[in-house]
Design a protein around this nucleic acid. Structure first.
Length: 294
DNA sequence: GTCCAGGAGAGGC
DNA sequence: GCCTCTCATGGA
């Protein structure tokens, strides 16, 4: 018998496929398996309940999916007259921001640089398979995300073999820094948002976007608002009438407009755009390129 | 074959 | 400080 967790207004499948976490896999019976930290779990949504195997992992799962939060308060905090955001929330209200292990979150987002979600997942799974601790659930083999020590031992060359490309440099350097004890990632927890952002940006391969992802998905700073190519496009098209806006201006706008749960608003907008296939507008780059080359 | 991707770093100005 | 170029790799 599984443990059950009350999960009103929660969507497991969409949350696991919203570009935050990159390793859960769907089973034929509609359940999902994956590791939370080093713990293998099986999860299945049944209406407003989340079923958890093994039962001892109930608390871990509730924390991971933020099922202890007042999600209604998050939704109520959003600006009422924002039609774009309302549409995105309506598309998938049960989306949750996860509370991911810090190192796993940092490392997977270092690999995310200039990559599509499908490929981040591919790299992430290969890194787990080759360097992670093997574990199993119901006879199925899973791999925990490797520790910084394991990354440091693996080294840049082997990480490149996992498809990480140039990102292997940042992964290796950051892992070495943490494995040596020179820096403790957990120290970010005691810092305020701005300090934690700066702290995270000290690592090679981590700029503001990735640091904000770690603030949001790892440290639970719900005001953090990662701006990637998708979000920048959405902001420009939906909030600035297509006008090109400097990054700093976008940042002050989102902080003021979306409020204390801006990170959630960001995730709703991102997920909606990505899932409804509002593809990139074709730009006539080719002709411009030719001109400069001729 | 071409464009694009949950960007970041280095170098030039 | 801002602008531009480069960095691997695979999906669409």
């Amino acid at each position: 018998m599984p443990a059950t967790i009350a999960a009103p207004n929660f969507d497991l499948a969409e949350t696991l496929d919203s570009g935050q976490v990159f390793h859960f896999s769907a089973a034929e019976d509609g359940s999902f398996v994956g590791c939370i930290g080093g713990e293998p779990v099986r999860l299945r949504q049944k209406g407003e309940q989340l079923l958890v195997w093994p039962t001892a992992k109930k608390k871990l799962v509730r924390n991971y999916f933020r099922l202890d939060e007042d999600h209604e308060a998050v939704l109520k905090s959003f600006p009422r007259k924002d039609r774009s955001l309302s549409e995105a929330v309506e598309f998938c209200p049960g989306l949750r921001i996860l509370r991911q292990p810090l190192w796993e979150c940092l490392a997977t987002f270092i690999t995310s640089s200039l990559k599509q979600v499908a490929h981040i997942r591919q790299i992430s799974l290969e890194i787990r398979r080759r360097f992670g601790q093997r574990t199993e659930i119901d006879g199925e083999t899973l791999f925990a995300y490797p520790t910084p020590e394991a990354f440091a031992r693996a080294g840049e060359k082997k990480l490149r073999e996992c498809g990480a490309g140039y990102r292997a440099v940042g992964l290796t350097k950051t892992a070495q820094q943490l494995a040596s004890g020179e820096v403790r990632l957990e120290d970010a927890e005691a810092l305020d948002d701005a300090e934690a952002l700066e702290f995270l940006c000290q690592f090679h391969g981590v700029g503001e976007k990735i640091a904000n992802c770690v603030l949001l998905f790892g440290l639970g700073r719900l005001e953090a608002f990662p701006i990637d190519v998708w979000i920048e496009r959405i902001l420009r098209e939906r909030y600035f009438r297509g006008k090109i806006v400097p990054r700093r201006e976008l940042e002050s706008f989102v902080a003021k407009h979306f409020g204390p749960f801006g990170g959630y608003a960001q995730q709703y907008l991102f997920h909606f755009a990505r899932k409804t296939g509002s593809r990139v507008k074709k730009r006539k780059k080719r002709s411009r390129k030719r001109k400069t080359r001729l």
